[in-house]
Amino acid sequence: MSNELILSFPVLKQDSGDFLDSISYTAIATQYQNDRKLVITHTLKGESFIVELLKNQKAGFSVTLFYKDNAERQNFICNDWNYDEDTQEIVAEQNIDIDFSYAPEITPCIVVTGDEKIIVNERSGLTDFWKNEEFDIPTFSRIAYHLKLQFTSGDVSSLLNVQCDKEYQDGSIKTKVMETAGEGDQPIKIICAQDVYDELKKQVIDLPYDAQTAMRKAIITQVLCHIYAHMSNLEDKKDIHSGLLKHMKEVFDKTGENWEDESNFNASFAATRITPYAISALNKENR
């Protein structure tokens, strides 16, 4: 969404300055991969004209799902919610079936369903900028946004899928980076021999204290080195898996290695400096 768009009505979003600090709109998404369900929870806090519009069925919660690989977009409206008088919270929950094996990008918002005129009063939830104002909101205007929701944190452990191949010779590891993997998929696949797999299941610590712990750290460093070298050589570093993008930022923040400067990017150095190595969340069915 552009930040430069100037509208004649207030919009509730992060740092917009239109609403009092006590007013907020948030949305969270939970994906249950086993039964291919997505649960979106919208929460609107504080007294505002948006609450009144929702109560009068003149606005609704909306969520758009975008399955990037197929350019498929789906939209779901929710007019069913619960209001808690004590906390002044409206909470709406949407249960949505997922049509693909990868998770979509999720864009939640609140939309007015008809032309509305608002006369600002003390219960409108607006800052002094809007005091005594009147404004019109056209049909289908988005009056509250939450940032696009994505599933991966960018932590390296959330990006890895580790599989054991019992036919691999001891010590063998194969690493593949699928930078254009779908949202919700793990874009880094590690296939390894049984002995390596057994080590990867154990905790890797920052400061090794014996040969075994040093070996575990070395395995991860080797894998990360391969991954970073691959990422560094990508021509297009923008249109890739959002988790990898976040991880690339993390690498830059922690190591100072600049992805934009390919010729000087030191994959080995970055791999030795990035922590933590906790791969405890390996291949969980429910993430």
Binding site: N75, F140, R142
Partner: peptide, 9 residues
Amino acid sequence: SIWKAIEIQ
């Protein structure tokens, strides 16, 4: 579409 939810009309 930035400000208007034309996807629902």
